[in-house]
Design a protein around this nucleic acid. Structure first.
Lengths: 346, 346
DNA sequence: ATCGGGTACGGAAGCGCTTGCGTACCTCCC
DNA sequence: GGGAGGTACGCAAGCGCTTCCGTACCCGAT
């Protein structure tokens, strides 16, 4: 018995089945131009011998690639880890392999990764994470991706509207509205915002939701302190430090993602400021640890795992006429980090 | 100017640099037989044009594959997410691409993933996560991997000793000893253990550390309640439920990883049991949120990100005569979840 | 000057597969 | 019964790269 797997070539199968290489290839690919009888014989021989096609030869010769490229800011950020989990889960079911790279929230680096993935002939590229308010970089990325798509590549993005690709769109604006309305409903008026870098789409969209809720209560975002720092835990800490120093009468802090909210809570704990008695805190995303924080975090739940799956689903469907958009829905999760505004602030 | 990215072939670079295809290939691969001057010119042109080799052609032609396969239990588990982050970080620097798959802690599924990765001709395979106490599955995995290694593939594992490959070995036993000694030093004697599945290497090793610390204090593991559940948050909750029901006088719970510790804390909170006043809790791993839990978690820090990097480093070096082993070190991190044993338990 | 030996480079043969095109052969119809 | 039209299959040309082998050239030794 010939050894299976590597070393066994299609030509061996062809000989054994008494046909030519070309016919064997067509038979296994299920293409036209082979009689049912011959096709079956080839398939049977291939099975017997345990033949597995060499994906490199196959792809090089023009076949489709079975790898999915996934670009995230960083996998060890829980938000992206969950999205990646969703993508990998579906990919597993489809027997696809997922290549993950980091963009590090750097448009230049992201572009490099896109190029790399294309050069590696990934058949599908999924980009997760906020776009940038950097027209040059975005335009270049869009150009590269559209070339890729014209060549048959499929692209899906999560959480950004540009790039001319199918998109999974988290309810950033509606979610921002929801948390803000929640705080306003509790009587808070001196609200501060701990935001990520001002150029991120996600930040802009969530802020828009905050602003619209404020307007409904006759307030304006311009009257609120908005501190832009990094969109990570440490950014939450520094933002809080600044808020406490410059706006000591603040009674609620809106962090634009859970990572920042964790930093906010950490700093408040260090300063001995009670949550929610003296300060309410809300986050955004509902990463899985949000329920286990001290105190547990009021936040907006986004279905990250599903978002990953949805993005891959979109990419697996043939391209439509124009970019498809698929909203995610959201859910306000009220936990222990928010409470009524303290009396003196009324 | 030839268009960059896809469609850009080595021959284009060669022409632009005024050399032959063969010379260009040698120059970029850093092989002998090319003058320093020509080699530099080729490299510079390649950089300018943003040339990236087609991995399919390269691999087909017999060159090394530039993709590394990483098998983790699940990326959206913070422990594995951080390891993956480390692997990807180094891979980025080396211009390698990382393919991630889930084993789901299922030996059969893991084996399937290994086979898939090999069929895809990954040049390096890294397996993170505990091995199983399942001789059949382990033996089969080892056989497949050794065939792969004989064919030039490189393998590194994180946190398991078998499989005959280079290994990064977390200080599981020493860490288990450290947390246990810490609790004993605080006067705890009625200690319970919330452990993962009894077949996992990691569980066995950490338990060994617990046992040795107990022995030094004249105690035996046999006298302690050890509850085996799932090695995740939910497992921590059920384990705690059982411990509270069957051993109500327990004053400290050792969770064998942080995920379980989070479940333990959650259940204690639900039951209104003060930590650390009535119950001390320790975890293991020091995932990044451990410091933000309520209360912050006493645990053993393992350098997960470095572990990922180290594993890839090992795999990038040529294979040694026998399997190399590289210990990780550990650090006891004392936070707010542990305190002196309550008086009545003395 | 001549020759051996080393170095720098180019030519060309594959790696295993897909696919365009050509060639038999068969069927059907006027 | 001869040509049109179809079907089933084989031949061979690549895909982009690595690498074996051959050739030109330069150096120092004769």
């Amino acid at each position: 018995m010939p050894k299976p797997g590597p070393g066994l070539r299609l030509i061996d199968v062809a000989h054994r089945a008494g046909v030519s290489l070309a016919t064997a290839s067509r038979a296994l690919a299920g293409r036209e131009g082979v009689s049912e009888e011959v096709a079956n014989r080839v398939r049977q021989v291939a099975d017997e011998l345990g033949y597995v096609a060499n994906p490199f030869a196959r792809t090089l010769a023009g076949g489709a690639s079975t790898t999915v490229g996934l670009i995230v800011h960083q996998v060890d950020d829980p938000y992206f880890a969950e999205i990646a989990g969703g993508v990998i889960g579906l990919a597993d079911e489809q027997r696809l392999l997922v290549q993950i790279c980091h963009s590090g929230r750097d448009p230049g680096h992201e572009l490099r990764q896109i190029r790399h993935l294309i050069a590696q002939r990934a058949g599908i590229i999924i980009i997760a994470g906020s776009g940038y308010d950097d027209p040059r970089a975005e335009a270049e990325a869009e150009a590269v991706l559209s070339g890729y798509q014209r060549g048959g590549g499929r692209v899906a993005v999560i959480g950004r509207h540009a790039l001319g690709a199918d998109a999974v769109l988290p309810d950033n604006e509606a979610g921002g509205h929801a948390v803000t309305a929640h705080l306003l409903g509790l009587g808070h008026r001196r609200i501060a915002v701990a935001a990520g870098a001002p150029g991120l789409n996600t930040v802009i969209d969530r802020m828009a939701g905050v602003a619209s809720a404020l307007r409904e209560h006759g307030l304006s975002l311009d009257d609120l302190p908005v501190v832009h720092t990094d969109f990570v835990r440490e950014g939450g800490r520094t933002a809080t430090e600044r808020i406490l120093a410059e706006h000591p009468s603040t009674t609620a802090i809106i962090a634009l993602n859970d990572a920042m909210a964790m930093g906010v809570l950490a700093m408040l704990r260090e300063r001995g400021i009670g949550v929610p008695t003296r300060m309410s805190v809300v986050g955004f995303d509902d990463v899985s640890v949000a329920a286990d924080l001290a105190p547990s975090l009021t936040t907006v739940r986004l279905p990250m795992i599903d978002m990953g799956r949805m993005a891959l689903e979109l990419a697996l469907e043939p391209a439509g006429a124009g970019p498809r958009r698929r909203p995610t829905g959201h859910q306000l999760i009220v936990r222990d980090s928010t409470g009524p505004a303290p009396d003196q602030s009324r």
